[in-house]
Nucleic acid binder design. Sequence first.
DNA 1: TTGTAAGCGTTATCAG
DNA 2: CTGATAACGCTTACAA
Lengths: 337, 337
Amino acid sequence: MATTIKDIARIAGVSPSTVSRILSNKKTLSSGYAPETISKINQIAKDLNYRKNRSAIELVTKTSQVLGIILPASPTNFAQEIIAGIQKVASLHDIDVIIAYAGEDSELLQMQALKTISERSVRGILLLGITLSATNAQFLRASDIPYIFLSVAQPEPDLPFIASNDFDIGYQATNYLIMHGHREIAFVGADIPSCVGQLRLDGYRQALKDHQIAYRADYVIPGNWLYEDGIQAMNMLEKLPHLTAVVAGSDLVAAGVINRARQLHHHIPSDLSIIGIDGTALCDIIYPQLTSIQQSFYEMGVKGTEQLIRQANITSSYTPICTKKGGSVATRNKQNE
Amino acid sequence: MATTIKDIARIAGVSPSTVSRILSNKKTLSSGYAPETISKINQIAKDLNYRKNRSAIELVTKTSQVLGIILPASPTNFAQEIIAGIQKVASLHDIDVIIAYAGEDSELLQMQALKTISERSVRGILLLGITLSATNAQFLRASDIPYIFLSVAQPEPDLPFIASNDFDIGYQATNYLIMHGHREIAFVGADIPSCVGQLRLDGYRQALKDHQIAYRADYVIPGNWLYEDGIQAMNMLEKLPHLTAVVAGSDLVAAGVINRARQLHHHIPSDLSIIGIDGTALCDIIYPQLTSIQQSFYEMGVKGTEQLIRQANITSSYTPICTKKGGSVATRNKQNE
DNA sequence: TTGTAAGCGTTATCAG
DNA sequence: CTGATAACGCTTACAA
């Protein structure tokens, strides 16, 4: 049987209210108590190994110091960075974090995760790297808990998000290669049906168009942002002799392309230039080091958490992207073509 | 104002207990209700957008379907794998997961995380990759919540754990290199003061001893399991001309050693052989692919979670390790020495 | 098959 | 400055 406030009150010879006030340490109230009483209560609490009962507190106060995070079942390698940002801000405000995992594609698992989080009186919900089905989005709206999506821009205006501008990412990645003299550029490993994939592809196409480069459907090889997708993509790229550069959907995809290219005796970057997307720690670890469009993941976590904690009205915004230079892109002499 | 069971009861014209019984879906009880009543209640609940109040439920039932996880502030790259294992088992049992972050070295932050978790009526606590201070360990024992440490073996017998045998890891890594003809072997990047680091070093020394190889203190370069430690270590290894092989404390350290070695124009593995520890996905991604002593992280998560859920008495155990072969170790001709 | 009532541990309101 | 007392939303004997 766990120790309660009543136990302490009985032993100390005071009322439960007194104990509650002292233990919950409200500045305005406990300041009035005799230091003697205060230390006595604290001592007994320690002796009896007293622990607050959060359920009781949350029930009566109807508030909590908890933030809910919903993650895709297989968190991407940058989820870590976003969570670090969340964690940083949360701990600054003495706020705890609950995590629930949602299957990306299973509507049922999504709902499960939403319920898990929304049934606990959380102060806000952060949805990382997922897109909800219409039904589930409706459920979320109806919960009257503040929420914000991170890293995936949402089309509906009442689903606020903090993310990179994926069109810009696609555009800049492609443009970077064009600026280095490439005109035969593949776009591989992205999950095209997804919002993110679609926008990046749009950016890729626009960059081509702006430089009078014809779009070729066989230069687009879809995937799921995975290392294996890079491997697969490279197998197909082999058959495209004019190709000189690749936009990879993620750093992982880029790593797959690079490694498979090496196995096929193509030299990176002299035979084939590659630019990644994400700018994760992986860029420095693989060889050659990867040039990548870097996203501000940590900042997404920070900004999202601050908004939720501040309780102000939540607004969508984009975080900056920048080009992180590695050694995977070579300048191409235009005469070569 | 959120909908409660009473609201539903009032509208349906039944008592709150009826609603409670139907909504909580106890097989034994709700089976007795008229199907009509049941569907009516469910319909109203849906219409009114009813959500259970977990605080109230946990307060009255004094149990919960939640598992607490405590993570080091900067989770290692394999934490993901362990969590995946935890998540897998937990979701199978309809159990939620709460995560709190503890600063590895700060006793205060550790305590903070312990409080966070133990104040919520969790069913059990999983401690990932951390070692508690004596005071904090005592706090944990006193909480009367079942707990288990994952991935770090604990010296005290009343702190159950599931981990790899770190002595064996150190021994096998070293032995693998010896079996490939190496006798001048460095041991780098490990956090020597830690339990894990100490045990692996012991294994390393024992392997040397078993093959009549003298231990050399200048062959041991401590670190913190990080990529940067590998870089640093390689800078120092440069000055040791007889060296032919390296045991890296982690895959990340190995990646650092390899990349720095390349910059210094040493060829891997012909000039220098390297074996990593952990066997993470990174092994396949870096070049050359890394030979590594692989740990069973996923299994640690699975086994730990099952133990906690089963509520049986928790016992320590070791998960298996195996050698994952890459291309970073070369066989050395013994005559060369 | 359903209803009544007590109580989980805490805080908040209001007296004293 | 301190103490009753009532709530918070739910479950669960016990009654009917």
